[in-house]
Design a protein around this nucleic acid. Structure first.
Length: 640
RNA sequence: GCCGAGAUAGCACAGUAGGUAGUGCAGCCGAUUCGUAAUCGGCAGGUCGGGGGUUCAAAUCCCCUUCUCGGCUCCA
């Protein structure tokens, strides 16, 4: 997006978006000098402000202003150059790889002898501030590519040379910022002094070109904003992310743990986490039965042969654990549930009238994940998929996809996720199945999405080798995306297992198989849920839904009566009649994020009513325990 | 797996001229019976992740190892 600005006295007002023609030279100069203009597009070509000396009124120009995403990227990219400049000043042997802007900030990959520590970032920031203060211009220069190669060879910048060798153009551009010269397409801000707010955030290792066969470089992450306020807001956001970290909340609320003695990536569900999981599972099963799925249970291990037939030993071996021997026969712990479901399908002859058959299972699988990638519940080695396999006829495919989409969105909405990023992944270079089938399946997927009015992006060539897929990423309350749901068409397994159905023509036909998971894995979904709600789960999921707090021992009998009453109504209720002050009990219960606190004092005991304090700190008017039980029951049923 | 940083009581953390461990909360005991986010006092709790080495002496220095964290790569 770009915006045309109009100046009025010293102020600049936004009056129009898009490209304009016929600006007067005076207007043009004023705009170029405006602190709100970062770069310019002349006839659609992105340029530095410094490149333009005069204006042709016939040519449309667009000003890239600071409220656009494009401007922020340019700005951050310039900040990364300044970072590199500062590093070069401090560490003479530093060699530079790439330093792009990202959606969150920028980074630069550096190769040097000194190993960076967090304290070094302070020094680098200082140096950057000096460079910004010096307000030196970014000067763009054009070079013939081979001259540029010679130039960077002479400067002993091997990564730049390598990059240059892969550029196809004869001419390249470099930017000179007060002697710090970097290969760069640009554009850049006009002068370093325009950077108003930045911060270096972290150091990390990163492979040259992201390939683990290459040398590991040191990456410095940072971010930059147009104003200090925006930077502050972003840093606050990072704090909020930390505060909501499901690993931290899990400790506070005693939800789950991971224990060295058990093993990395293996989850122990504590009572509070387990009751939430059970509630999710019960809901899941009920809804699947309503949606005409059939629930299955299958073993955790199977003979190696099965995985040979399925092909997993060929294409999924890296993620599978070593086999174990039982009576001289090799068995493998399952990384997937599909072969089991197929075996159940095959256990009897199927008629076209029976299709579609929808098998669903909360199937626990084990996959080898490299030690460095494990992360709380989000990335584990043993997890339970809310898996289902649908066997259908070709003419049923589209209808089935539609049903799955509806079902997915219903389930996700129930958990409070109502905005998504959807991706349709198409045929990759290596694939099985006929082109015709791919074509049919892909159009069935896209047609279903269109019919539902769901916006999606196409991930060209990112499908699995056995079929196209739809991935649904949910957005949480901090607007972060999480991959959970996936719907995949499979042409491979029906062939490999030779599954068939008997058609109306009396002949054998090959069904189409759809793999789908809505929550993905219960572990990850629970982790996302925890962060989404910051541990304050909605009533129907809360481990303890209400707690009775007594003010003194005198009301113990009435409190017990209330507790028992609510327990009889299937409310997850606790009683705290310990000898503590009410303020302390409220604090304890609030920290546990219990939705409702039932406060019982002599007043309540005398009037036979209860006082309710809601999680947000507000009180409800006194009511009878029957009314309270009805209120909770209604909310639980409605999953409010 | 790779780069870097870590691991001290249930939890959060102190503890660098190397001289056999502290604080707060939680737990237990006692007192207090107190109306909306912490009442007071006492007690107990750790072979300082594990193994090896240097030293008269190691939480502290060195090596190995396991795990955790931030990334890279990969993924539900």
């Amino acid at each position: 997006m770009s915006i045309f600005l109009y100046y009025q006295e010293a102020n600049i007002n936004i009056i129009q978006e898009g490209a304009v023609k016929g600006l007067s030279p005076q207007d043009f100069q004023r705009l170029i000098n405006s602190p709100e203009v970062i770069a310019i597009k002349v006839d659609g070509q992105l340029k530095d402000l410094s490149e333009i000396t005069e204006i042709n009124p016939e040519v449309p120009v667009e000003f890239i202003t600071i409220n656009s995403k494009e401007a922020l990227h340019i700005y951050r990219h310039s900040a990364s150059h300044i970072l590199a400049h500062a590093v070069k000043e401090l560490y003479k042997d530093a060699n530079f790889a790439i330093g792009p802007s990202t959606d969150e900030g920028f980074y630069y990959d550096i190769d040097m002898s000194h190993t960076l520590s967090p304290e070094d970032l302070v020094q680098i920031e200082k140096k950057m501030t000096e460079i910004i203060k010096s307000n030196s211009p970014f000067v763009k220069k054009k070079l013939r590519r081979k001259d540029a190669i010679e130039f960077f060879k002479a400067r002993q910048e091997p990564y730049k040379v390598e990059l240059l060798q892969e550029i196809n153009d004869d001419e390249v551009t470099i930017y000179d910022e007060n002697g710090f010269i970097d290969l760069c397409r640009g554009p850049h801000i006009s002068k370093t002094g325009r950077i108003k707010a930045f911060k270096l955030l972290s150091i990390a290792g990163a492979y040259w070109r992201g390939d683990e066969k290459n040398k590991m470089l040191q990456r410095i992450y940072g971010t930059a904003f147009f104003t200090k306020e925006e930077l502050k807001a972003y840093l606050d956001y990072l704090e909020e992310v930390k505060r909501r970290d499901h690993r931290k909340i899990a400790k506070e609320l005693d939800l789950f743990s991971i224990n060295d003695d058990i093993g990395p990536g293996l989850i122990l569900w504590h009572p509070a986490g387990a009751i939430i999981r059970k509630t999710i599972e019960d809901f899941w099963r009920e809804e699947h039965i309503k949606a005409d799925y059939q629930i299955l249970y299958t073993p955790h291990i199977a003979r190696l042969n099965l995985w040979q037939t399925s092909g997993h030993l060929d294409f999924y071996k890296d993620n599978m654990y070593s086999p174990m021997d039982i009576d001289d026969i090799s068995y493998e712990i399952k990384p997937m549930n599909c072969p089991f479901h197929i075996s159940i399908y095959k256990s009897s002859l199927k008629s076209y009238r029976q299709l579609p058959i929808r098998y669903a299972e909360l199937g626990t699988v084990y996959r080898y994940e490299r030690s460095g990638v494990l992360h709380g519940l989000m990335r584990v080695r043993g997890f339970t998929q809310d898996d289902a396999h649908i066997f259908c006829r070709e003419d049923q495919l589209e209808q089935e996809i539609l049903k799955i989409l509806d079902f997915t969105i219903f389930i996700l909405k129930t958990f409070g996720f109502s905005s998504y990023n959807i991706y349709l992944s198409t045929r990759p270079e290596k694939y099985v199945g006929s082109l015709e089938n791919w074509q049919k399946a892909t159009s069935a997927l896209s047609k279903a999405l269109d019919l539902k009015g769901l916006q999606y992006e196409i991930d060209q060539g990112e499908g699995v080798f056995y079929g196209p897929k739809i991935d649904i990423k949910i957005k949480d309350s901090l607007n972060r995306s999480w991959q959970c749901s996936t719907i995949q068409v499979d042409f491979n397994l029906p062939e490999r297992f030779d599954i068939t159905y008997r058609g109306s023509d009396g002949k054998s036909h090959r069904p189409i198989m759809i793999h789908r998971a809505l929550m993905g894995s219960l572990e990850r979904f629970f982790g996302v849920l925890t962060e989404h709600y910051a541990g304050a789960f909605p009533l129907w999921l809360s481990p303890v839904q209400a707690i009775v707090l007594t003010i003194s021992e005198k009301v113990n009998d009435f409190a017990m009566e209330i507790t028992n009453h609510l327990k009889q109504k299937n409310i997850r209720i606790e009683l705290n009649n310990e000898n503590e002050k009410i303020g302390f009990k409220i604090r304890e219960a609030t920290l546990r994020k219990i939705p409702y606190l039932v406060i019982i004092g002599e007043k309540e005991a005398n009037d036979k009513v209860i006082t309710i304090r809601i999680r947000n700190g507000n009180n409800m008017p006194p009511m009878t325990v029957e009314d309270f039980a009805n209120l909770l029951t209604k909310q639980i049923i409605n999953k409010e």
